[in-house]
Structures are given as structure tokens and as C-alpha cells.
Amino acid sequence: MAIAPHRIIYLIFPSIIILAGLFVQNSYYLQVLTFIGINTLLALGLNLLMGYAGQISLGHAAFYGIGAYTTAVLTVHYGLSPWAALPCALAVSALVALIVGFPTLKLTGYYLGMGTLGFGMIVHIVFREWSDLTGGASGFIGIPPLDLGPISFSSGRNYFYLVWAIVMMCLVVSNRLINSRVGRALRSIHDSEIAAGAMGINTMSLKIRVFVLSAVFSALAGFLYAHFVMFISPGSFDFLVSIRIVTMVVIGGMASIWGALFGATLLTLLPEWLHAFSEFEMVVYGLILMVVMILLPQGLTRGVLDIYEKSKTRNR
């Protein structure tokens, strides 16, 4: 093969996006695709932390919310342009991640899960109770749309391209990171933190750096969400959202950046399909989660590959 498959993907993927942008005429579908993009960013960020560094986080919606609320507060209360608010949103999220990360990432397993869960809950309560700044439980209205000079992103198509361009960038960044020295070090932490430490890897500093990076990805998603929907409320960043992000990562397949894409697609579309079940929606959703995890604990991407390989060897 002249070009390695993992390089071809960088040609195929953008072309799919451009084609989708050209051929999907209905703005409803563009809207769905935009939400998929935002969710992919979330899943990608968490996947770096969970899939590669092996650290559970059940509170990632907090960073998503911090990104969204920071840009909302800065653009509405302080009249900043969204593009000036963007670095602030990312920085605030990174700073919070740094402060929280130090004590929290010392924990492992369920204890880490619970620590992050508690953090997410507290941030959610802050969004709700600090009503002078955040608009409280009713939510924050009047967030301005994005535009860049003459290009306005208020149309569905332009926003779709913007979101997916950012997703593409983040995918490339993640991929470069994973296949670098740092990425190998991360995976060694996933397998055995003690062994990694013995090999001279500063595990704590590495874990914190990944945690911060993943918080930045989530804040970016929050920024895009806030300016797309133009309204945010604490309900969009609660415990259940954190769980949904974890589910995207796990169902899509951990330790695979493309699995995050698939997980986000599935979890965004699933509720749309389940509308048909109306009252049964919750039951079916719960069952799907359980069954996928029982049968394909590696996630669907890996699971489908496994099944394909098995059927190939059987035919032979």
C-alpha cells in the first residue's frame, strides 16, 4: 500500500464533511450534524483522559458548562466579542482543571470517579445559585451569534462547517499527541501507573496535563454550544450530561479517537430514533446501554471489527 491507511483517513474524512455540507439541504439535518460535532469534541476530550490515560471522569459536563458560561458572561455582561471570549473560556476551564486536578487525580478507580462526580455536582449548583451572573435556573438568554468579518455563522451551514473544521483540527491534534512520546507514556499509565513511574515517567504531571487538555476540549465544545443555541441553562450541564459523555466514549470504544466520533454520532441520534418508542424510550435506552456493554465491553467500533474478523476466519 502506497499510503498508510491512517493517512488516507485525513483525505476521506474532510471530503465526507464537505460533501455533507454541500448535499444536505435541510437545515434540520445540518443542525443534527452540528450537535454531533459538538458531542464529538466532548467525547474526544474525555477519550484522551479515559481511553488513553485510564482516568475516569464523571464530571466533565462541568468543563463543558464552564466554557459555555464564561463566553456567555463575557459577551453579554462585558460586551466582549465572542472571539476574544474564546481564549478566556478555554483559559478559565484549564485553570479550574489545574486546580481541581491536583488533589483529584491522586485518586484512582471509583474514588476518582466519585471525586469528579462531586466536582461536577458542585459546579452545576454554582451555575444554578449564582443567579446574578448566570441567570440562575431559568437560564442565560441573549448570547450573540458568531461572525467573522463578512462571514456570519448564524446560518446552519456555516456553523456546521465551523464546528466540523474545529473537530477535524482536534482530531489531528489528538492523533499527533497519541502517536508521540507523550502518547506512549500515557498508555503506559493506563496499563500500569507504577510501572510507568518506574520507567521514569512523571505520571502525576502527565495526568494533569491530559486532564487540562481534555477540559479545554470540553470548554471549546461549550463555547460552540453556547453560540449555536444562544441560550444556556444549568440543566444542560448536569450529572446526566456527564454520564452521557462517558457513555459516548465507552460505547464508541475507548482508546480510539475515531471511536469518539462514532459514539457521539450514535448517542446524538439514538434519542431521535427512540422518539418512535415514545413512552418506552427510557427502557429501550437503558437496555441498549446494558446490552452493548455486556456483549461488546470494548465498545462498538472494536466490537464490530472483532465480529468481522471472526466471520472471516470461519469462512476460510
Partner: peptide, 17 residues
Amino acid sequence: PIVLIIITVGASIFFRG
């Protein structure tokens, strides 16, 4: 642990539904 967390979360959604 992560797999078990998701399964029990799935179960809780299922029971609630």
C-alpha cells in the same frame, strides 16, 4: 470499573423507565 459503571447506569435508566 468503567464498563460496570455504564452497565449499572444503564440499569438505573432501565428501571426508571
